[in-house]
Simulated scan of single mutants.
Amino acid sequence: MTDTAPYEPHHQDLGSRLNWLRAGVLGANDGIVSTAGLVVGVAGATDSRETLLTAGLAGLLAGSLSMAAGEYVSVSTQRDAEKAAIDLEKRELREQPEEELAELTSLLQSRGLSADLARDAAEQLTARDALRAHARVELNIDPDALTNPWHAAWASFIAFTVGALLPLLAIILPPQSWRLPVTVVSVLLALALTGWGSARLGTAPPGPAVWRTMGGGALAMGVTYLVGTLLGAVGG
């Protein structure tokens, strides 16, 4: 009888992929909440579809470009730090190989290997590729998979834009009397979906995440609508 264990994929970059996916979900959530707050606030002050469209597009572009720029700077800093750590490791391997071998042995021992086995494993890893061994074991960095700031920037730009399009379309497409109800319902449903997705990615119970995202979005729309209504009344 053949043992048929379920297939479980193992990818070295699985954690990285999950991080990117989680960042995409959070970027979309930011796009939904910030744009919804903006257009609902403007809707409290004016009924002009042109004004709503202008404000929504301006918010979408400003938000998506800001997200992309921020992510590019952040990931570039991370990549520079990773490259600097790898360069330092190269120099240490070149100038003090015995000390580095002892350090790798100690690190492997701290992960549960016996002294003899850790020494043997360290020697084999060093003989195969010393830099890669130290980068992965000591620095927790894969030299072949350094973070790419352009990928991060584009991912943030797209995620924010996709999220922001929902409240923008919901506020300008329906007739005037339906704008706010359609926008509020659409936004809350979308936030429930992003809350559920972020919870599933983090293997957490979806209920609290869903209520948090919906509550935050509802609060943002309520506050901005109130402010917009007050400003519209003062301006009128």
Rank of each mutant, 00 (worst) to 15 (best):
Y7V: 06
E8F: 02
E8I: 11
P9F: 11
P9N: 02
H10D: 00
Q12V: 08
Q12P: 00
Q12Y: 07
D13T: 01
G15Y: 10
N19Y: 01
W20D: 13
L21P: 03
R22Q: 12
A23I: 02
A23T: 00
V25G: 05
L26Y: 12
G27C: 04
G27E: 04
A28H: 02
D30Y: 05
I32Y: 12
I32L: 15
I32H: 07
V33C: 01
V33H: 02
V33E: 01
V33N: 02
S34H: 10
S34I: 09
T35W: 08
A36D: 03
A36R: 08
G37A: 06
G37R: 01
L38G: 02
V39E: 03
V40S: 07
V42P: 01
A43M: 08
G44Y: 09
A45F: 03
A45Q: 06
T46Q: 02
R49A: 15
E50T: 13
T51R: 14
L52Y: 09
L52P: 10
L52V: 08
L53P: 06
A55G: 14
A55C: 12
G56A: 10
L57W: 09
L57H: 07
A58G: 11
A58I: 00
G59E: 06
L60E: 09
L60F: 09
L61E: 05
L61H: 10
A62T: 13
G63P: 12
L65W: 09
L65G: 06
L65N: 06
S66E: 03
S66A: 15
S66K: 05
M67A: 14
M67F: 08
M67V: 03
A68Q: 02
G70H: 11
G70D: 08
G70T: 05
Y72L: 14
Y72R: 13
Y72E: 07
Y72N: 07
V73K: 02
V73Q: 01
V75L: 11
S76K: 14
T77A: 15
R79W: 13
D80N: 13
E82L: 10
E82Q: 15
K83A: 09
A84D: 12
A85S: 15
D87K: 14
R91Q: 12
E92M: 05
L93C: 10
L93E: 08
R94F: 15
R94W: 08
E95T: 10
Q96V: 14
E98W: 06
E99Y: 04
E100G: 06
L101D: 01
L101F: 01
L104W: 08
L104V: 12
T105M: 03
S106I: 04
L107N: 10
R111I: 03
G112E: 13
L113F: 14
D116V: 14
D120C: 00
D120M: 02
L125E: 00
A127Y: 00
D129E: 12
A135Q: 01
R136I: 00
E138K: 03
I141E: 11
D142F: 00
